[in-house]
Design a protein around this nucleic acid. Structure first.
Lengths: 208, 208, 208, 208
DNA sequence: GTGTAATCGAGACGGTACGTCGAGTCTTGTG
DNA sequence: CACAAGACTCGACGTACCGTCTCGATTACAC
């Protein structure tokens, strides 16, 4: 599975791919996803709005979920600055990180879309792998790096269970948005970061 | 929206509802949900396996998601003992609570189903309300009561931010299962509980 | 097959039949047939308008077509005076007869209903027998009697092919109404009668 | 309403219509109509026997009645030679015409189908127009032409009421088949033609 | 230039499931 | 018994997307 958009081969024979079509499809899909959600979005509607044919979409994506994955990735890219965050303190790094994600996910229709992707990730294992590789792992890694830097400069103990910390951190935020369907503000983000750091610093090794 | 299973009215005129049919439908739906997931489950298949007609299903449920909601509720009921948990310590209460939920959610196909329900909860607000009222709020309330008891007996400070604690607690577990798609064992549950408690006890009031 | 309305047994045990129900059903069916036609008329609607239950209808009629048959028979009875027509001349008798039928069949919705009955008569042989026995044969017989009287008083030759005359007579009228969907007025009826009589009187025996 | 079989445009973009499918549908519908009649014929069954999908049928026909209309037209075409009938005498022309129609309508199941079409023609005005345009008007016109030729060559009076003659002619035949549900043989056709001609030739103008 | 190869639009097609509707049957409680 | 209420099975309906498939038209590189 998976999209095979830019194979970036040097040059092939035949009519070259019309990049405008790809962009128009992603744009149309983005609008429809925000307006109606994943389930209500039909490829017919995407094709009509993009001015292409359904066959062209199927040529480059193998399902509408994969198309949606590419679409929200393109939208996230606009919200998240890829520059490495390094404020000098762990709390500062984590807060910056979380707030950047929050800005991206609070665009209209994005929560609904996120939930739909998560649902499909559990229905289709291959899609689940792609989903995690693109939206879960990167987030986790950038936060992981922040913890590693904090250990390196002695801010937190070396034996800190970073994986646990990440689950607490992102889990709390996700829980509030996805399950409680409640808004997440900056104050909540600060509370979460402080609680997690206090819980980790004070803790003894977990091995009973 | 929502199902209207019989509110146990005393006795009405007309042919009585065949309870066996309702049970058979729920049973068939449960099997098919575990085997194929929500999206692949057809009402045709449910009706065929339950030995009823599709029309009978539509008489009592307004969508297959609502049917699924009733189905997993029936399955959860089998896993979760409703007796109030009170071990005497906050950590003990929380662990018992979490582990009870884990047992229920680790039945085959249940993760996939949970994710699908969450996805639909964000697609259909009315369904979202029903979903939270039945699967989110009860869990939260039983844990909330455990915190209240802990405050009453002086185990944790009275000004503890319980809502935050709940988000950390259940968020960490949900994050690992839903997003990381990784297993949650008893050790992880213990680590989460300990971390959250330490983070809360030591913390100062959040208001800047 | 066929309806089994009033079995007219002397007196049976149990709750006596509520004649009002039967009348209400026929009345409701008549209204609905005129308003919407046979196919669009549902037994649900009839039952609702008659204030009865569907089961009661099924108790006395075995299909909605049979119910319709009884219904239009009741309506025809109101239009057609059963007294024997005898004006003294064949042309007069035939005209009276035809015009009486026309009055009945030109009630609103009646053409549509007649066509539907005819369609069903060819779909269900048993119904076809009942239909002809009630709506075809009687008409034919009363006109046949008029011809017989004309022969008796020497108005037309004794060897007149009456069956052929009846087919020409009623066929022309039915053709115009049913097939051409055109109105039939008194002038047309007079023309038909005159043409048929001239054609028959002048003719030689048909056997080649 | 109405079917839109291919108007034979020169060449359009897109996948060309698979003519075999259209033919298979008409053939399957023809068989099923003869076997079971219009009401019992299911589009499911037609699709299954034709090896197409129900959607394809709905793409080209808007109801099963319209499909039936096309079907019997195709079958009539096989029975009726379109060559203009001109035997030199009015009686000869009319007999040829009537007997050609009789051959077509006496195929198995055709009477039942004809009656059903007539019923639907009165239930759905738009269908009624289509029905008459295809099965009523053409028959009428060819016979009308025969009368016109007879007037031209002085065989019958110029003031003959042709419309009345047509109603008598076809009405008598239709009455016997549709209403009396009796067979029509060549002798009956001859009798009808002779009677109508005698009735018309001898008659005076109808205007009082 | 003239293939050759690829893309794109349009749109028909077989399929599957949907949600609805009506027919006809059955099972209660009430009169 | 008759009747109302109403739950039930069955089967067809017409619709909506899906994913696939032919087409004709277009556009480039390669010979």
């Amino acid at each position: 599975m998976g999209a095979r958009p830019p194979p970036d081969v040097p040059r092939r024979r035949g009519r070259p791919r019309r990049d405008q079509a790809t962009a128009a499809i992603l744009h149309a899909a983005g609008e429809l996803l925000a307006e109606e959600g994943l389930l209500a979005m039909t490829l017919d509607a995407v094709a009509a709005r993009a001015g292409t044919s359904r066959a062209t979409i199927y040529r480059w994506w193998d399902s509408k979920e994969t198309l949606a994955l590419d679409t929200i990735e393109a939208q996230f890219a606009a919200h998240i600055e890829r520059a490495i965050i390094d404020t000098g303190s762990l709390a500062g790094d984590l807060l910056e990180d979380i707030e950047a994600r929050l800005r991206a996910v609070q665009a209209p229709g994005m929560m609904r879309l996120w939930a739909a992707m998560l649902g499909h990730a559990h229905a289709d294992p291959a899609f689940g792998d792609a989903y995690r590789a693109r939206f879960f792992t990167p987030v986790r890694e950038s936060a992981h790096a922040a913890f590693a830097r904090a250990i390196a400069r002695g801010e937190i103990p070396a034996e800190t269970d970073i994986e646990l910390a990440l689950d607490l951190l992102f889990g709390a935020v996700a829980n509030r948005m996805l399950h409680a369907n409640a808004p997440v503000d900056a104050q909540f983000a600060r509370d979460v970061v402080r609680s997690v750091m206090q819980g980790l610093i004070a803790r003894e090794p977990s091995g009973e």
